[in-house]
Amino acid sequence: MYIPKFAQETDWQVISNFIRENGFGILINTDESGVPHATHLPMTLKEKTPGKFVLEGHIAKVNPQWNYFSRAKALAIFSGAHSYISSSWYEKSKIPTWNYMAVHIHGAIRILEDEEVINGLRTLMEKYEAASEKPVHITDIDDKTLQNNVKAIVGFEIEVEEVNATYKLSQNKNTTDYNSVISHLKKSGDENALKVAAEMEARKTDKQQ
């Protein structure tokens, strides 16, 4: 994706935390005709070996997208908070915009073996069941049901080879406009707007305090 220089995020710690917090993404790859296929699904970021990261997930076997996994590199998209920015919040500018945070991961994709799929399901359940009042563990699923479900899905792993991250948060605006955007976002009360405002506040430079 195109990222203006002022909005580029290159800190892997920030990016990896973003992926873990916004793990429900979009997996995209193309078929033999170059037609893109996309599926919305949860993906887990793992450090496979020191400094080597992968994304892991699965799709339904009835979904034809997995048939094209070996053809080319895949693209995984993760989106975070976003909000409309009215030009009425600026001193002079009359051009509105949109503030947002997003990460694109490109890499080769590999189909997982059954045991790897089960390990992936275990990791996924442990992550998302943790907040449940009565967490369900993969060991609570009887073997027959688990195996039948494993046969109905295709697990995959994407090597994290190229990372593009944008945090477009009014960094190109002057201090007055920057702080005005934060103030108006807070007043809106919208959940997305509040998250954008919080991120903008966290990224204030000394000059913007």
Rank of each mutant, 00 (worst) to 15 (best):
I95D: 08
Y100I: 01
S88D: 10
I95E: 10
Y84F: 08
I85Q: 06
A108F: 02
W98H: 05
S79I: 09
R110P: 03
N99L: 02
I118P: 03
D114Y: 11
A74W: 00
A74L: 00
Y100N: 01
A76W: 04
K92Y: 13
R110E: 13
K92L: 15
I111L: 05
S83F: 07
G80V: 10
A81E: 09
V103Y: 03
E113P: 05
T97D: 07
I85S: 00
M101A: 14
N99H: 11
T97V: 10
S87P: 07
R110G: 05
R110F: 15
K73A: 01
F78I: 06
W98T: 09
F78A: 02
P96Q: 03
S87I: 06
Y84A: 03
E116C: 05
E115V: 12
E113S: 05
H106V: 04
E91Y: 01
A76C: 13
I118V: 15
P96F: 04
H106A: 05
I77E: 07
G80M: 14
H104Q: 09
I95V: 15
Y90N: 11
V117K: 15
K73E: 00
G107M: 00
I109E: 01
I111Y: 01
W89I: 02
I109N: 00
I105K: 12
E91R: 12
Y90C: 05
I111K: 12
Y100L: 08
E116A: 08
W89F: 09
E91C: 09
I111M: 13
L75N: 01
A74K: 01
A102Y: 13
R110C: 04
I109H: 01
I77S: 11
Y84E: 06
H106G: 01
